[in-house]
Design a binder for these strands. Sequence first.
DNA 1: TTTATTAATGATAATGATTGTCATTAACAT
DNA 2: ATGTTAATGACAATCATTATCATTAATAAA
Lengths: 157, 157
Amino acid sequence: MPWRDGTGPPWWHGKFRGCGYRLTASRQAILDVLSKTSKHLSAEDIYLKVHKIYPAIGLTTVYRTLELLVQTGMVFKFDFGDGKARYELSEGPRSIGHHHHLVCTGCGRIVDYTDFIDDEIELLNQTEKGLSKKYNFKITNHLIQFYGLCYRCQNIK
Amino acid sequence: MPWRDGTGPPWWHGKFRGCGYRLTASRQAILDVLSKTSKHLSAEDIYLKVHKIYPAIGLTTVYRTLELLVQTGMVFKFDFGDGKARYELSEGPRSIGHHHHLVCTGCGRIVDYTDFIDDEIELLNQTEKGLSKKYNFKITNHLIQFYGLCYRCQNIK
DNA sequence: TTTATTAATGATAATGATTGTCATTAACAT
DNA sequence: ATGTTAATGACAATCATTATCATTAATAAA
């Protein structure tokens, strides 16, 4: 399956049909928005962006589509503790764009990092294997976040 | 500082005074409940349990106390994707009770695991050190969750 | 191609966890 | 013992997310 190699249709085209879902304009628009950002968008952020391109869309559809995308593993849903969920396109824990987060508990700032990812991934693979066997889980993804204070919040009294 | 060694007052007594907070009956009751469970309680779960011992307490106070406990690092707030936050007493990522979670995306079942923790922790320490330096973050905690399907959900069509 | 089937959609209302308000109470420093 | 002020509880308000339901449109069937 072509994964964003620039040739042919976007990598997600086949994903829907295969599962019996329809590839609609709304869904394409949402995937488009997600694939063109590196930000951590909330459902409403996504709604607003999609709305510019495709004004007919409703917020409900955004929520519904995101749920579907999360279920099929195409999108990962994050919680950074600010009361709304954030969504990122997920090409799986082994993909190139995969990263983890550093979360400032003072101001909510989020830093994506890919440093150290290689070592982490290797260990995580092992852990995954062990956990899968012991608990009979079929593991599909993982979430790693570090919490702390960013340089700014360290210096605020 | 005594950390639940069984002698003297509960380990958290000093935590409050030191920060200028008052150690009230509500707060003690909430900490008591949290320290006596290994479940992943929501704010309402906690409210109901505390209410039995200390019926005067209000739900608002539970939320406020939990927020305080999270801020001071005594409690960790989790999101397992079911719409409500869960709280666990945190003695920090190096403590004995520290564990990570396996989350079933099918039914929401949560498995705590401590297996592999030692290797994980060692790598996480290194990563933490590297990240701290590079991004100038003062890291205080981390969150690790694996997502997948439990044995039951794997066999449901 | 036309038509039938049914998933997908949008508008709107409903839900429910969490937060804000404010008068009252109680910890604890003095 | 008393004053200061943080903490509390009842209640209202907020706001992200979900449910409802009539309508539309993507795909299969003819």
